[in-house]
Simulated scan of single mutants.
Amino acid sequence: MSAERICVGAIAGAYGVRGELRVKSFCAVPEDLETYKPLTTEDGSRQFSLALIRPIKNGFSARIAEITTKEDADALRGTQLYASRDQLPSLPDDEFYHADLIGLEVTDTGGTLLGRVKTVQNHGADDLLELQLVGGSATVFLPFTKAAVPTVDLTAGRIVADPPEGLLPDRRDAEAE
């Protein structure tokens, strides 16, 4: 994904038979999805001017002028919608776009490399950073709280973490195996 684009929503499929779409917004204010124009696909090959019609369960009913049939709308199912980074609001010092966190190195408070951020998840409470641990395919979920992640340095490309006790596999156990 280009650092110049941020994923702000996704098309979930058709809504009705006249070309309306079911759209999920990933914006802090869900209705802001409509204000970012044009929205593009991840690679920028297609552009969309989206108009939100009304809220529906888990998102919005929306229109794109070129989409006039249920089949056209269903063909876009799964399409992620990206906005240009310069259209998005700047964030306070303690807030971050998920796209900026993915790929950052994560060290503990002693400077030992733990791994890299693989994804950022949110299942209803706080965000969780999925860490790809050093030296293997194992991942762990680190709470993205001030206590567990005291420092995020985007300029240096790193996160300093103080993981809760028991979150990380014990290195002695890993070496014994």
Rank of each mutant, 00 (worst) to 15 (best):
Y82W: 15
Q132I: 06
E31N: 00
L128N: 03
V23K: 00
Q47I: 06
R77G: 00
D32N: 07
A12D: 06
E66R: 14
S2F: 12
F141M: 13
P38W: 15
L91P: 02
K57T: 04
A3I: 08
I11V: 02
E4D: 08
A3Q: 13
N58P: 04
V106H: 09
A138P: 02
D126N: 12
G115S: 04
Y97Q: 11
Y15S: 04
L33W: 02
S61A: 04
K24C: 01
T69R: 04
P38E: 05
I159V: 12
Y97C: 09
V8T: 07
S90D: 06
P164Y: 06
R77E: 07
T107M: 04
D127S: 13
G44N: 04
P30G: 04
F144C: 14
K70C: 05
D43H: 11
G19T: 03
M1D: 04
R77C: 02
R63K: 14
P38V: 07
L113T: 10
K57Y: 10
E175P: 01
A73I: 09
Q121I: 14
T40I: 01
A148I: 06
P30Q: 04
L76I: 08
I6L: 12
G103I: 10
T35E: 12
I56S: 03
T119M: 10
G157R: 12
A147Q: 13
G13N: 01
D173W: 08
L76D: 02
S49M: 13
T41K: 13
T40S: 12
D127M: 03
S90A: 12
R77Y: 03
E66Y: 03
P38A: 01
H123P: 03
V140L: 07
E66K: 14
T109A: 07
G78L: 10
E175F: 15
P92F: 10
A83M: 07
E20F: 03
L131I: 15
A138L: 12
R46C: 09
A174I: 11
E71G: 05
D108H: 00
P164G: 08
D94F: 14
K37D: 07
L154W: 06
E105F: 11
F48C: 01
E34N: 00
T139A: 07
R63Y: 03
K70R: 15
K37S: 13
T155G: 08
V17P: 01
E95A: 14
G103C: 05
T155Y: 09
V117Q: 05
L101V: 11
G166S: 07
S45L: 14
I159G: 00
D74V: 04
S137C: 08
R171V: 15
G9P: 10
Y36F: 15
P163V: 09
E95S: 07
R46G: 01
D74W: 08
S45N: 06
T139H: 09
G78P: 06
I6H: 09
T151M: 11
I159H: 10
D72N: 07
Y82K: 03
V117N: 05
E165Q: 13
A65M: 05
A174S: 10
Q80K: 12
C27F: 03
V29C: 02
L50F: 00
K37F: 09
T109E: 14
A75L: 13
V117D: 05
V106R: 10
A83C: 04
E165T: 08
A62L: 06
R116F: 06
F144V: 11
T119Y: 13
D43A: 04
G166M: 12
V160L: 08
G103M: 02
E4Q: 14
